[in-house]
Design a protein around this nucleic acid. Sequence first.
RNA 1: GGGCGCUUAGCUCAGUUGGUUAGAGCACUUCGUUUACACCGAAGGGGUCGGGGGUUCGAGUCCCUCAGCGCCCACCA
Length: 920
Amino acid sequence: MTKHELPKAYDFKSTEPRIYAMWEKGGYFKPHNDPNKPGFDPTVKPFVISIPPPNVTGELHIGHAMFVSVEDLMIRYHRMKGYSALWVPGSDHAGIATQLMVERDLLKTEEVTREELGREEFVKRTWEWKYKYGNIITNQIRRLGASCDWDRERFTLDEGLSRAVREAFVRLYEKGLIYRGPRLINWSPGLKTAVSDLEVEYNEEDATLYYFKYKLADSDEFIPVATIRPETILGDTAVAVHPEDDRFKKFIGKNVIVPILGREIPVIADHYVSREFGTGALKVTPGHDPNDYLIAQRHNLPIISMLDVEAKVNENGGKYKGQDRFDARKNLWGDMKAAGLVIKTEPYHTTIPRSQRGGEIIEPMISTQWFVKIESLAKAALDAVRDGRIKIVPERFEKVYFNWLENIKDWCISRQLWWGHRIPVWYCPNNHMTVTREDPAQCAACGSKDIHQDEDVLDTWFSSGLWPFSTLGWPDETPDLKYFYPTSYMETGYDILFFWVARMIMSGLEYTGQAPFHTVYLHGLVRDEMGRKMSKTTGNVIDPITIMDDLGTDALRFTLLVGSTPGNDTNVGVKKVEANRNFANKIWNAGRFVISAIDSLHATRNVDAGTQADTYTGTHGDGTRSTQHDSSANWTLADSWIWARLQQLIRDVERQFQNFQYGQAGQQIYDFIWSDFADWYVEIAKEQMKNDATQLSTVGTLARVFDIAMRLLHPFTPFVTEEVWGHLREAVGQNAILSNLAKDWPNALIVAKWPEPREPEGWEEAKIADFELIQEIVRSIRNLRMEKGVAPSKKIAASFAGGAKTELLKDQSRVIASLAGLDSSLLAIHSSLAEKPKDAATLVVGSVEIYLPLAGMVNIAEEKSRLEKDLKEAESHIERLEKLLSSDFANKAPAALVQKERDKLAAYKDTAEKIKAQLK
RNA sequence: GGGCGCUUAGCUCAGUUGGUUAGAGCACUUCGUUUACACCGAAGGGGUCGGGGGUUCGAGUCCCUCAGCGCCCACCA
């Protein structure tokens, strides 16, 4: 028989890669019920999560660690529960981000621009980049313990997914839900592409408000106008005033002269203009302002674009042509000043639109782009959440979701980029458009062979919107799609609720007729320990890789999972992770103790064979009990208590999981393992194991409770639990007496059965209450010893006396005695009833009196004042409870609750009486 | 301008249908190196749950209101 020698400290560094390789090699990440394999059972329930695909060129940050932790927990839990669990991994081509990265790299290493390289070559280089670096992020996700089915890994630009994108586009086009045309869109001059409304961020910034004169064409009068962007004067096509504004009424219908350019434009009346705001008159630049664009449509004004794709002034800007927008602003203003058209400038605080990507100021521009008519899609997506087909956790985000979809505008899906899904539209010289699923050889309308494809690519989110079903084979009716779709949970950060989640819902409903998932779980953002957003410039980034190197993956995962609440941001500091590294070590050592207990059991029994039952049949492998607690005469109070607590824990954890309260669940498991199991049960077990009568049941209980605790904890901290459980399994399996216990245990914890909650058995509550009394007694004895400064090594006898509860102590005297022997803060305790010894300190806990002969240390006066203090406390409780029980509480509160308070009152009264007797 | 969140121990945070004397980690004080663990154990100190009002037998929890902080959405030059 091999003894199990395990190192004192948990070595996560060597364990984690080994365990992950074992899982992957063992095929545990694959759904156990696979529709592509023989023996498939369609009645087995699947549980499916599509990973939020990280950017293929990205590197792991704490946000990834967060979603991987949560999703892996969800997957592992359902896998253990018997679902055919599938977590589909993959990555996103991330159009703009990737293109920028490759562009920057090319410029640095080869000093060549993307334009110089040409489209075809650039795309080729980007693919090379993808092959070279694309697995960095997925390997980092592996390090987090992600139990994804890597054989099903997908990439948004894969052939299959590209086909899905194409199918989706063509379908929408055929339904008339996609159109192309010139519209005012958000233009990013640096990236030289259109971006969607969502990709524009509005920041409060300091700016300047420029006041100037719009001179009348036929008089010397002028209309004062203010603007933040004077250069847009070059594109003005009207000046608008409020129709009832007495100051400007007289000018309506007349013309004013555009400064410097000298064009004449009309003065129009529109209710949009606010009389109170600014000068009360508004310059109208329909080509570069969304409001002005609407005004222009109402008044049939011409629309002038005065900027090119790089936001330089174009030919419509007269002498300013070729100047950058900000240079033009300065120069034009200077010229206007010289011409006496300037009134004043003043500092102004306003919202400036900036590109989410590049950070530069977005310019509204007229441009021909592709759009999705969103109204019908949005309506369907709204309904799916309204009628409960999709539930959002936490619920408050449903309101946010509704609000966004109710006010949504058509989605600009074309981007002037090279890296992405090219728009599947071909043009011929006759201006026909051919939109087909397969690349056409000729124009569908006129047959012209002289066709060329649209230069633009699709918004990245167009393809990621298809992710839940495109990754399963859509548009083909694959076995995967049939079985695994719709998926189960969509877990992601609330920051991409609109970008991604809403679009997946719209797409899923539109293309598959089904909601792509039934639950949306949103986690919060991870911030630093001071609640600040992590950013490279602030230097407060917590790198998950470093954390995993230093403290282990389990510690990181547990930190992210516990102490955070759905939808709320969470602050993470290294201190917290350290605490959880300690927890991993605690688990390891508790496991070591259990294993050594098992090994020692074997050794002892061999010597003493025959005097005891030599097999242990206390339980089934999944933690269900085959024998009644009470029939096992050898069970001590502590055994019963820890078992009852465990059952309680299983019930609580199950409830928390159903309510998505993962943090709470984790916290409770932590408390159980550390406080109940390690601090109390293990310490008691040490003593119980010395006794032949209790050794077997104690070791059995240690093994069973620890086994189940590891199962509960596994979704949180998969590595350490897998590792230590593996050792446990081996130890139990090799043990002649206990091996029966592990006969149903699988080869790895990852696929072990989840402990199912059972209805509380009648005895549980009472045993817990009894043990809590013992704990209280022990604590007060320890407390007294501390107070008296009794050396921890000094053993003292104790006697107990008291009322009905004393029976408990009599029965469980061995528990007390056991504590006495080994606990440094406790002492030898004789549990026999006794008269109060001379020169003893007295404690009253509940109805129990405890005498501690502390010869020489007991000071009568001190003793008296301590007892008086205790009495005072008891009396204050009595007063409070009597008041409570004489109030309406007694009539209106639930009977059980009232009874509980009555019991408490009785106990305090008893305590008070006992103390009074002592004081006499 | 709308909407949402947060405000609980020195710090970072839990606290799910309202129900004991409000919890954890870290930090702090005292004691301890007992053969699972010093990445440890024991005993402590520390909170009028942001302010005010209300509903209720009972409020950290529900309602109203005020204040501070943060976030999201929104076309006021």
